[in-house]
């Protein structure tokens, strides 16, 4: 046991050294369809503050977070905030995504990541909900996993700061 760990731990400990390069990376572009069959290109949103929220219809914490995203969207969309609610539901349940959103009365755009393309770019551990905030210069300003009460306040403060006066 000791010798095995002695060999393996150094091997994987160095991987943690990558951590410092984490932030302020350019946002990775993607193209997806929304629930209405329209194409959405992330790069077309350069100049805006974009919140990409990964969720799924079976994800409880995601459902807890969504009303707060809607409130944020209502408050700041006129100032340039875009919220992309990105459903990670697989194709079997695609038909349920739009009815779910409609039943809740949410109005932010909802995209379908049916080939798991974008979740792999931004959220390789596949944690849900997963929030990515992109600033006006198309840089990733924040990535965050999970939702706990109070998170929406911090998100609101960040968005306010990024939107500017």
């Amino acid at each position: 046991m000791r010798s095995l760990l002695a060999r393996l731990l150094p091997l994987f400990t160095f991987l943690w050294l990558f951590a410092p390069v984490a932030h302020a990376a350019p946002a990775m572009d993607f193209t997806l369809y929304d629930v209405n069959g329209q194409q959405v290109h992330l790069a077309d949103l350069k100049g805006k503050v974009v919140v990409v929220s990964f969720w799924a219809t079976w994800c409880g914490p995601c459902k807890e977070e969504m009303p707060h995203l809607q409130a944020l969207y209502d408050k700041y969309k006129a100032k340039g905030l875009v919220i992309l609610s990105l459903s990670t539901d697989d194709v079997r349940t695609t038909s349920r995504v739009k009815p779910y959103i409609a039943s809740k009365g949410y109005t932010f755009p909802v995209l379908l990541d049916k080939d798991s393309a974008v979740v792999g770019l931004y959220n390789p551990n596949k944690t849900l909900p997963w929030t990515v905030v992109i600033d006006r210069s198309f840089q990733v300003a924040e990535q965050h996993g999970g939702y706990d009460p109070g998170d929406e306040i911090k998100l609101g403060e960040l968005v306010t700061r990024l939107l500017g006066p």
Partner: peptide, 16 residues
Amino acid sequence: SAPAAAPANVSPASPS
């Protein structure tokens, strides 16, 4: 949690 994500449709900065 196999991250095997396929960055599909990634088109850096290409306006639609």
